[in-house]
Each structure stands twice: as structure tokens, then as C-alpha cells.
Design a protein around this nucleic acid. Sequence first.
DNA 1: TTTATTTTAAAATAAATGTTTTAAAACTAA
DNA 2: TTAGTTTTAAAACATTTATTTTAAAATAAA
Lengths: 192, 192
Amino acid sequence: MGRPRSYSREAVVEKAMGVFWQNGYKATSISDVVRETGLNTASMYKEFGDKEGLFSAALDHYRDHVIGPRYRILIDNPNLEGVEMFLRNVFLGAAKSEYKGCLMMNHLAQKHVISPEAAEQVGAFCAEVESLVEAALRNAQADGDIGPDKDTAQLASFLVFCVHGTVLYGRHDEKKHVIPNFYDMIMREIRE
Amino acid sequence: MGRPRSYSREAVVEKAMGVFWQNGYKATSISDVVRETGLNTASMYKEFGDKEGLFSAALDHYRDHVIGPRYRILIDNPNLEGVEMFLRNVFLGAAKSEYKGCLMMNHLAQKHVISPEAAEQVGAFCAEVESLVEAALRNAQADGDIGPDKDTAQLASFLVFCVHGTVLYGRHDEKKHVIPNFYDMIMREIRE
DNA sequence: TTTATTTTAAAATAAATGTTTTAAAACTAA
DNA sequence: TTAGTTTTAAAACATTTATTTTAAAATAAA
């Protein structure tokens, strides 16, 4: 009963996420989001509580619907080939001219500007990616695709470290074209 | 003639830089800077023009007085040992509990939030570091410390890429302790 | 001492920010 | 039809923001 809502929560979150991704949390105003989504502030606050709640919902949406498919590669291929495809995919994304980085990692440099809850979402996301990579590398080791003496946890950390590097280095429009060249270096370091 | 100024420009810039480093450009208000420096807004605006001018001065100060000494290692030791010391130094900085990243690279994810001039300062700084590393690696190659078939420009890019990775990955308080382990991996990739 | 000049402290401004309130609109159940 | 409920549109709110103005304070030269 009551007046029916004129919006879809998911559509609103999707657009809000886009604004946060583009501008970052602090440089995004509620007005920006209202303008982009067409939703009024009252409904916005009723649905999400406050700006932090909206950002938190945007982070969840990003994990579940935007970046999820990208690291699904690691779930579907929990082995060396999966890791290779994953890294190629990350590099491919960074090559685009409109590259915006990663909504999560973009906010690492402003960890204390976002809410503690959001900061934890970011941390948990990165940890999750790392553990997926590690699982794949453990299998790769069992497959004999990487040396038996290799520390898979450390290799996984290094790979995610390089993803972080991509997120930042990929912002140099004039330099990012070299990133794909790092693929062989990184994979060699993992294999041998 | 006229009333003598009660502040030292350099001291003001130094403190302002600290606030920008801690909070980032967008999350730093002039009030924050005024509170920290003790300088009044009128003198602030007379000296720096506007917030962007102040930030620009802070970036210059960072380059010339804070981070300069760190990559002076590369000037004083333009060879493989210099590159090794430089990287160890970067990793050492990230190990600190109060690690704040790099004032320049911290703002790469918000390149369009800062002024075009500031964005250029950031880009120029990173390019400068990279060219210093490359010069050192070219010498290292001449010294026979790295393979004659190695692409020194690409290796320099990779090293700076890893510095970018450090700046972001170093924000994971629970994970950053693994970063020093990457030293051997990266240097091996450069050497062999 | 006066005048000119510059900095300072403090107040003022205008716009933007995050958030809340008010009242009208759109629906359901009685 | 009415009463009850929820969403909406619009305005209102208090705070913060970047910036400017005003007037007092501190100096040097005339």
C-alpha cells in the first residue's frame, strides 16, 4: 500500500556508483547523484540513510555486479591459466582511454576520508581477490605449472600488488601503454 | 616598508603540505590549513592566490624538500646499486605505521579533481623519477650489471609501476608487511 | 608627526554541502 | 468514499566551503 516508488534501487545504485567511481567519494555531492539518478533527496535518504550508506551500497554493487565477473575467471579457472587471464584482463581494462581505475582501490589513498565501514569493504574486497589468486596458484603448483618451492601466498600478494600498481600507473595517459609489457615479467616471476 | 609579515612562506607551505598529504586535496579545507598554520586567510590568499595555488606550492615543496633527498640516491648513485637503494628506501617508507603514501601519486586517482596545473606537476614528477631510474639502469647495463639485451626504459617503467603499487598496497595495514618480500622478485626481474 | 604602505585580525559573503521538513500526490484496504 | 500509508517534489535548514572585504595594527620614508 502507499504510493508506489518510481525508481529501482538497483538502477539508482548503479548510477550512483558511476559517479563515485568517476569523482571519488569526497568529490561527489548528493546533488551530483540526484542529478545523475533523477531521484529526489528524500527518497535517497529514506533508502540509504546518508551519503555513507549510499557509498557503501555502491561498493557492494561494484563488487557483486561490476568487478565480480572479472574475477569469476579465477573461480572458473582456479589454475595458472586463470591467473594469466585475470592479469591480462586487468591490463586490458587499464588500456582503455576512459580508464577510471578500481572503485575500491581508488579510495585506498583516502582511507580515512570514507567511513570505517566503507574502508573495511575496500580491505575485504582486496583480501578476497588475493585469496582467489592464491587458491589458483596453489592449484597451479599442484599441477606443476609453478615451482614446488614457490611461496604461493607471497606470489598472490605480489600479483595483487601489481594490480594496485596498474590502478595508479594506469592514470598516466601518456605512459600507461607500457603496462601490457609487464605481463611477461610478472608471470615469469610467478612461474620460475 | 609596511607592516612586516609574521610568517615564513616556507613554514606555511610545509604545514599545508602535511595537511594535503594527510587528507588529500579535496578533503582539505582552507580552514584546516589556517588552523594548522596559524596564518590568517587574508595573508593566505594574498600569498597563494587560491586553494589551488596553495596546493601547487605544496607539491613543489614536496618535490624539492621532502622527496627530493630520496631520489637523490639515484643521482648520487646512477647505477644498479642506486636503483637497489632507492627501491629499498621506498619499501622502508611504506613499512611505517603512519605511512601516508606519496603526496603526488596519492592524487593520481583524483586527477580531474585537482587543477590541471597540479595534475601536470604530478605527471612531471613521476616522469622525472622514471627518467632518473632509467639513466641509472643504462649505466648499470654499461657496467654489465644487467643483461645487454634488456630494455632499460621498460625496466624503469616497471620499477616506477611497482612504486605506484607500493603507494596503494601500503595502505593495507594488515598486508603491507609483505612488501619487502617483493624486493628480490623485482630486482631479479631487472637483473636477469 | 604625518603619510604612505603593507600585513593582520575579524567579520562578511556567497555558494555548496549534507540532511530534514512540509505538504501534495498516488496508491491500498475498509 | 474515506482513512491510512508511502513516495514524491519542493522548500527549508544548518554547516561548511572558498573567498573577499573592512578596519585596525605595524612598519618606513617624508
